[in-house]
Amino acid sequence: MTLLADLAQALIRGDRLQVSELTCQAIAESMSPKAILDDGLLAGMKVVGVRFREREIFLPEVLMAARAMYAGMGPLKPLLVAEGVPSQGKVVLATVRGDLHDIGKNLVGIMLQGAGFEIVDLGFDVGPAAIVQAAKDHGVEVIGMSALLTTTMPAMREVVDLLRAEKLDGDVRTIVGGAPLSEEYARSIGADAYAPDAYTAVDVVKRLAGVA
């Protein structure tokens, strides 16, 4: 088995110490940082995603793999930046105004970073104007919005309307999620997509960002 296949397997097991060790070994052997990322870390996360969708593994195991991913990214990130390797894309994440439930949004952020996206996490109780402004400031491809309370969901529509008003809706796509939401609700407010869970969100964001 090659070093990068070993790296992918260690990530799948959620073995962060071995992921860190193998990443450093791959760097020491002068492997390309992009190959280490693509064929080691991201390849492992892809398998984790498939197994999660098939319900062969569960959220805590996905999060263990995500932690291992971070352990590998530690030594790798400076090299990727130095080589100008682009990320998969940039995503603004926020729990909308009036809502403080951010665990789901945090999980989406962890998964997206594990899939190679850069995340601008605005936190919770974020107003529509601040979300749109952050999207403009950071030049993101996707805005992800979360809500747990039915009373706060309408703030998502305000973001979609604001993007339209500023003629940004062609460049910045929107994805919504949270316990009380549905595909139908996403459509009704004009959002581009809905995801029922954090891992589905990764696939949907990849599609929205054009990197699927």
Binding site: P60, L63, R67, Y70, I103, L107
Partner: peptide, 14 residues
Amino acid sequence: GFAEHDFAAAAVLD
């Protein structure tokens, strides 16, 4: 836990 990237432990404790 989340800040220290110990996501699984933090999420289960939550």
